[in-house]
């Protein structure tokens, strides 16, 4: 029998490396903020910071969901397409009064849940790789959406949708409040509940989870449903921010959400990660995008930097594991 406590190979003293391992992202974010502040005196003003965070909120919502899926060794490429489809769905009510908003939310969440259910079913039950299953879902949703709209943008929306995206309660943007609520609810689910423990178990070792009486299939499907619901809600808030529904609302969010989660230390191999760190990843991503503009670089530079960051971050966390 193996001893319960194996001796640690390394000393546990506090080294610079270990501090950087744990707080690296925060240090990095603070450094970025300082650079940004040095470059532009207006950057660190609360008004500007709130502005930046408001733009980032829908992405944050998607990242909350993406984290769940990545934790069970998956990934969801259909989130952006779902966001746009939910946005189109919101206009399908042809509502011009705010009474329709609750109905829009219920419909959007129900639709997203079905999409997540199909994704999860394909991955868990049909053993389709998450990449292909969600890729196919992305294309299918895109087709359905365009077939409905004919490719034209629509703008019949209840006026209240705009308030959701850019309105404020007690000076705090509504979408930030929503993101915080979403993160806290799902953070508690993930890090404090039985389901959360099962998710980590399935992500780090599905076989062991199964032997411990956890049904991996059910947990995986649930993660995809949560991811899609988060993306759907994110889509509604992004829609309100943009104002009109183009068929490409949220384009690029599938990759950005994965980049942010990976930067936040959510391991693509599953079983390791933290929702709040992933959200920190969103902050870093958004500040970097802002910084590129502040530095006067062309906007295309964002693409290059994003590419370097995602490879670099994945490599960083990979060596951390080794």
């Amino acid at each position: 029998m193996a001893p319960l406590e194996t001796p640690l190979p390394r000393s546990q003293g506090v080294s610079v490396a270990s501090v950087f391992e744990r707080y690296g992202l925060i240090v990095f974010l603070v450094a970025l903020l300082l650079v940004a502040a040095a470059l532009s005196p207006t950057f660190l003003r609360p008004a500007n910071l709130v502005n930046v965070l408001t733009i980032a909120a829908p992405l944050g919502m998607v990242v909350v969901g993406q984290t769940f899926v990545i934790l069970v060794r998956g990934l969801d490429l259909s989130v952006a397409s779902l966001m746009a489809t939910v946005a189109v769905l919101a206009t399908a009510f042809k509502a011009t009064t705010n009474d329709a908003i609750p109905m829009i939310f219920v419909a959007a969440i129900a639709f997203s849940a079905v999409v997540g259910l199909v994704n999860g079913w394909l991955v868990a039950r049909r053993n389709v790789s998450p990449f292909l299953a969600t890729l196919a879902m992305m294309i299918i949703l895109q087709g359905i959406r365009f077939a409905y709209t004919g490719g034209a943008p629509i703008s019949t929306l209840p006026p209240g949708m705009g308030f959701l995206a850019s309105g404020r309660i007690l000076g705090i943007p509504v979408n930030l409040i929503t993101l915080a609520l979403l993160a806290i609810v799902f953070g508690v689910v993930l890090h404090r509940s039985r389901l959360g423990r099962e998710i980590f178990m399935v992500g780090s070792n599905p076989k062991a989870a199964f032997l411990n009486g956890v049904a991996p299939d059910r947990v995986i499907i649930l993660c995809y449903v949560i991811c899609s619901i988060c993306a759907g809600i994110g889509g509604l808030f992004l829609l309100g921010y943009v104002g009109t529904v183009s068929n490409w609302v949220g384009q690029g969010y599938e990759l950005d959400s994965i980049v942010a989660a990976v930067m936040g230390g959510v391991a693509l191999t599953g079983g390791r990660g933290n929702i709040f760190a992933a959200l920190l990843g969103v902050a870093v991503l958004v500040v970097i995008n802002n910084l590129v503009l502040l530095l006067g670089f062309p906007i295309e530079m964002q693409l290059i930097i994003k590419g370097i960051i995602i490879i670099g971050a994945a490599a960083f966390y990979r060596t951390r594991l080794a």
């Binding site: 990759l255 693509l268 530079m301 290059i304 590419g307 960051i309 490879i311 994945a314 990979r318």
Partner: peptide, 17 residues
Amino acid sequence: RVHPLIVTLGMSSIIFG
């Protein structure tokens, strides 16, 4: 030793930019 999905995704972004 990073998953090819991430490496090529990142490279794609870099090349496109």
